[in-house]
Nucleic acid binder design. Structure first.
Lengths: 125, 125
DNA sequence: TCAACTTATATGACACGTCATTGAATGACA
DNA sequence: TGTCATTCAATGACGTGTCATATAAGTTGA
């Protein structure tokens, strides 16, 4: 039943889980403590920050993250309420929205990114 | 600001996230569909199944999983209600509980484990 | 141009996880 | 032995994610 290969697979899986949870928790706590945003919020900020163009983005961003469309929508809600991001409707397709960092959002992202990268380095070694 | 090393770290992190979510979702769906249990429930069953002894386990199991003590307690609740596991109080320390698979639990775990390993193999290649 | 279909996002109900707290048992030590 | 601190597990309040659906806009084809 439990072949050595099975055990090895399970070990590998647990190692991924453990790395994922440890790292995510560390980043989440740090960002929450210093900037009052969670990891999910940061990840959206980060995606928006690295998308330099003005395309209609909500949809495309969804393709770059394991998040659900529904989850995205709610995260963006929170970011908008926090004044870090703004939604703009798209001229050529009014169903779509594109997102833009506010000045506050850009500033916060800049600082938070430093922390984020540092914690990744610390945890993914 | 964004050094090549930073980018590489972020790539690595996204890859871990993606693998984790993809794999977890695949297993979760399959187990839910065939056995009406989630991934979390399976993981507890799996841990109990591989702990052969009769030690007071609730605590020790907690050390082998990224789950919170609180989360564990609730998962065990569900497993107990589903008749797959039973809690037994411990003679030498009545604060502790140890867990045991019921016959149904052992049977389900046996089948589910096959599916679990197969999906790990498929997703962690 | 009008129906039927598809696509982009938002929302409500619900499930699950976390945090903080509680209750109960144990341990330490004067 | 009596008090105080510690440990194990359970629970309630709460936040966030998911699924199913709603809303609105766009597309297709007779």
């Amino acid at each position: 039943m439990a072949t050595p290969q099975d055990r090895q697979l399970v070990e590998q899986w647990r190692s991924i889980q453990s790395t994922y949870f440890r790292t995510a928790a560390a980043i989440d706590r740090a960002l929450e403590a210093r900037f009052s945003i969670g990891l999910t919020e940061f990840e959206i900020l980060d995606l928006v920050a690295e998308s330099a163009d003005a395309a209609c983005r909500m949809k495309q961003l969804g393709e770059r993250t394991p998040m659900t469309q529904s989850a995205m929508s709610k995260v963006v809600d929170r970011l908008e309420k926090a004044g870090l991001i703004s939604r703009h409707s798209c001229a050529d397709d009014r169903r779509s929205l594109f997102l833009e960092l506010t000045d506050a959002g850009r500033a916060l992202h800049g600082e938070a990114a430093v922390e984020h990268r540092a914690l990744l380095k610390e945890n993914l070694a």
